[in-house]
Design a protein around this nucleic acid. Sequence first.
RNA 1: GGAGAGAUGCCAGAGUGGUUGAAUGGGCCGGUCUCGAAAACCGGUGUAGGGCAUUGCUCUACCGAGGGUUCGAAUCCCUCUCUCUCCGCCA
Length: 426
Amino acid sequence: MLDMKLIREETERVRKGIRDKQMPEAEKSLNQLLILDEEFRLLRSDLEEKQALRNANSKKIGELKRKGESADEIMREMSTLSEEVKRLEEKSRSLSQHMDSLMLDIPNLVHESVPYGESEHDNQVVKELGEKPSFSFKPKPHWDLAVDKGWIDFERGVKTTGAGFPIFIGEGSRLVRALKNYFLNTLADKGYIEISPPLMVNPTSAMATGQLPDKEGQMYEVTDGFFLVPTSELVLTGMHRDEILDADMLPLKYCGFSACFRRESGSYGKDVRGINRVHQFDKVEMVQFTTPEASYDALEEMTAISEGILEELGLPYRRLFMCTGDIGFTQAKKYDLEVWSAGQERWLEVSSLSNITDFQARRLKTRYREGGAAGKGKPEIVHTLNGSALAFPRTIAAILENNQNEDGSVTLPKVLQPYFGKSTMG
RNA sequence: GGAGAGAUGCCAGAGUGGUUGAAUGGGCCGGUCUCGAAAACCGGUGUAGGGCAUUGCUCUACCGAGGGUUCGAAUCCCUCUCUCUCCGCCA
């Protein structure tokens, strides 16, 4: 959510942002919002004047009654005034509700460094590192490799749950566990506080973090009105909703492991083959709360951490600088990291890192000041960032495919071996 | 799941229809005292939005959330949410 003041005072910047993000529908909302804002402010000043009069009169009535004098005349006046106030209050409420829903259509402004582009084809590859492995045999895609070795069972996953719910078995499961510990230890060593989050959130959290209303179709809703988390970000950032943080706590860094649940309706083809895109997957997520001055540096820091992990894993990767047309509604600046998967001979997205500036925190009402809630000075809205380190399935796909041997065994990256307890799978 | 109690400012806690943005205590900030500190004493200490003006005054809203009663609601009524205690059940 943007600041209404910004929308009002820097309308053309907001309009340009909408156009750059290729969201023409949002411009209609913007236009309507400006009209309603005007109307709302007029209504407001009228209402407040009448409220002030009502307050003054009711004070007078109190005084008269205490003195034992008649207040009938003022009371008669008041009943019409009160009705008018009530009418205006209701109008103001419905106007502001309408405005709130329009506000949700306006995307975040992008950072000036973000390249202009109309679609995913315009994203820029700003970094490419690592050697793509070469083989003396034809490397298999993971869906053959892992199934042959019994590490992943897709069919039984369909049996127990449905398509897109693979079961990791034996050393497959052990690899998941090794990755989890490796990722979390690495992040803890970098100063990230580890969180084991709930896997369901309430609609308020889903709304405040920006998953609702626009991404409702992406989440699974369970019968008690909760949503299964599509990412632990909802908990890691949502935990500080309605709080004023102590400035000394910033930057506040969290990391969390969780299963992530996504409907992924409309996906098909090679994108969903194997574990490239599934309905439930594990992910370790990083989140930061920073001051406005620090957020863009924090994005670089987080990106460096995810890239460092890929380098330690020996996976060739590239970094995409997402263009205005592909960056997403809430983000001001975003990088995607993709690993090379030798069996599929394509790049797979394993991490997405974004600076959301104050866009999410405004809705969350997460602010900061010297001394925290009991402190002095005006509270400022924090900046929030999030990034994956990393999503498991595609990382696993790349590890298996890139490190496979002719007999189907997999020589694990050095860094994982102590976590796995062995150097080889299979 | 059953029964009861509660939700007020940074915290504790009063307030049960009128001058209450809210007593009192604690904390925090500033000051007096002191060589310095403690103690004591004095003063200050919310959020959001608007107006004037320019860094101060003023108006409005906010006492879990939403409705209602009333000329007037923190205070009365209804609904919801959450917390606590006891019982039951259970990893």
